[in-house]
Design a protein around this nucleic acid. Sequence first.
DNA 1: GTTGTACTCAACCAATCAGTTGAGAAGGAG
DNA 2: CTCCTTCTCAACTGATTGGTTGAGTACAAC
Lengths: 133, 133
Amino acid sequence: MSDDSLSRVFAALADPTRRDMVARLAVGDATVGQLAAPYDVSMQAVSKHIKVLEEAGLVSRSRDAQRRPCHLEAEVFDLMTKWIERYQQRAQERYRRLDAVLAEMNDGAAHTSNDNNNNHNPGLDPTITGAAS
Amino acid sequence: MSDDSLSRVFAALADPTRRDMVARLAVGDATVGQLAAPYDVSMQAVSKHIKVLEEAGLVSRSRDAQRRPCHLEAEVFDLMTKWIERYQQRAQERYRRLDAVLAEMNDGAAHTSNDNNNNHNPGLDPTITGAAS
DNA sequence: GTTGTACTCAACCAATCAGTTGAGAAGGAG
DNA sequence: CTCCTTCTCAACTGATTGGTTGAGTACAAC
């Protein structure tokens, strides 16, 4: 659900042409023809790109006679930012915890000096196989 | 260059399985087998996914006997966050400018009450066809 | 040495994707 | 009405992708 929409957003932005279009739309709304102008591809190809951006929720299209002005929807960026920040934070927390463990090891314990630690993954949290979604 | 690496990062995160792996790696390092366990795909498939994440700079692999523990590289997230925030800000600025224009129109002018506004793109910035890359 | 584990590489396959061309739909202008 | 512009839809093509299986590498353990 939210998973699928995140996939669409990331996939939409994985294409440099589409990222460039987002950059242009951030400056102001534009029609398909205006968006197509700087590239040497057909308008149909650009129309397809816009469709991808639209289905990802990044862009909305309205009507103005024959023209279809495209508008950037900024809210979707929040979705991405939240996802990224979550794992960014977790990774940073993990570093802090690892530092703490290393400090503790240096501090009080030398009895685990050999690798008889049957978990061969240093720093591996056993909850890793648990729920993570 | 930086463009290409951004494409790789977004493309890597466009797959829900790979995003799930990133979520697991944010909790702690894990081997290929451990990452493969919760999914009903072959280890080769998981190995490929990790390779994609690695080439995107999101993950690094070290050696531990036969095992190849995977580690999340958090710095790459900054690259994405910066890109997103740039256009998020631009879009928000644009809204603010549009608000200002609307306020000005309400304030001093009633002569454009019908739609003879020859610029049929409300809010369209003429600089859009100019340099934007 | 042989066996078993953890993993990668190479080749293949079906599905998706980014592009094309050709045909139209929608609507303003002569 | 006809012409022209703007754009979408449908069908096709070549490249990429996510998966498979089979073989091979690296290393520990017996």
